[in-house]
């Protein structure tokens, strides 16, 4: 009897991880589904169950000039950050993985690039805001884009570096033996082999920038508004149907980027 009880208990513990995964999926997706459901309500303060289906709040969001301007700003900053951030990440990855620099130099460079990961964002954001004012750069698009680049750099660098480290050295050595110079090797061997990682990096950097809130909050000033700033401002006033529809649109933009990325590569 006792042994049966312990056996049952052990089997229970053995099932625990599976149960946690199931609960985690419910935990992660229920809020998104509820917002999507509520966004279809015609009421200004929707209740569950919603009384009828309507797309009127989506129309309201998409005809709201403030929101559209914020959306275009976010998309623009996201694209610039994604492309420049990936180029810088490629340079960083090359230096960390393949360069002729000493081990210590490469390690130090990696730590400096990783800085935004272990320094609290609010401290860096505040510091960048003050430094930007100090050097006369002020607030606006340029500081925001620089701040975003700084923020995405560790992600793009380490994402590309992981793939770079897996590349077979012998391929470029063979190309060298066949008379290719460094530039040709880089263009015809390295870049094509890194392509999946580069594309993934562009998409992830775009998502990071598109969703970034705190750095933008400190650097935007009064003239620039991005979607996360706009939504945060409205959340503080109160949850409304307008926000639900806007949230769903924001989620769709980043989910598209994530969907494209997941067809490209293994996520790890």
């Amino acid at each position: 009897m006792v042994s049966r009880v312990t056996r049952l208990a052990e089997r229970g513990a053995g099932r625990l991880p599976g149960i946690v995964v199931a609960l985690a999926l419910v935990f992660l997706y229920t809020p998104v589904l509820i917002i999507a459901y509520l966004s279809l309500s015609p009421a200004g303060q929707p209740t569950i169950p919603i009384d009828g289906f309507s797309l009127r709040w989506y129309t309201a969001v998409l005809t709201d000039t403030r929101f559209i301007r914020a959306l275009l700003t976010s998309l623009g900053i996201g694209v610039v950050t994604a492309i420049c951030g990936t180029a810088l990440g490629l340079a960083g990855a090359y230096v960390i993985v393949r360069s002729h620099l000493s081990q210590i130099a490469r390690r130090s460079i990696a730590v400096i690039i990783a800085l935004p990961l272990f320094v609290p964002t609010v401290v860096v954001a505040f510091g960048i805001g003050r430094a930007s004012a100090l050097v006369g750069l002020g607030y606006g698009y340029l500081p925001v884009i620089l701040g975003h680049l700084f923020w995405v750099l560790p992600f793009t660098t380490f994402l590309i570096a992981a793939r770079y480290a897996e590349l077979d050295d012998r391929l470029s050595a063979a190309a060298h033996d066949l008379g290719a110079d460094d530039r040709t090797v880089f263009r015809t061997i390295t870049i094509p082999l890194l392509w999946p990682a580069l594309t993934a990096s562009v998409l992830f950097a775009f998502a990071l920038s598109f969703n970034e809130f705190l750095i933008t909050f400190f650097l935007a000033g009064s003239s620039v508004t991005t979607v996360p700033l706009e939504i945060f401002g409205k959340v503080r006033i109160g949850a409304t149907a307008f926000l639900n529809a806007a949230s769903v649109l924001v989620i769709v933009v980043s989910a598209v980027a994530a969907g494209v990325a997941s067809t490209l590569r293994r996520p790890v």
Binding site: P31, V32, I34, I35, F204, A207, F210, N211, F213, V227, P228, I231, F232, V235, A239, L243, S247, V250, I251, S254, A255, A257, A258, A261
Partner: peptide, 11 residues
């Protein structure tokens, strides 16, 4: 990949 302001707002 999603926006954390939006995700928190959902709660």
């Amino acid at each position: 990949w999603l926006n954390y302001v939006v995700l928190n707002y959902a709660w």
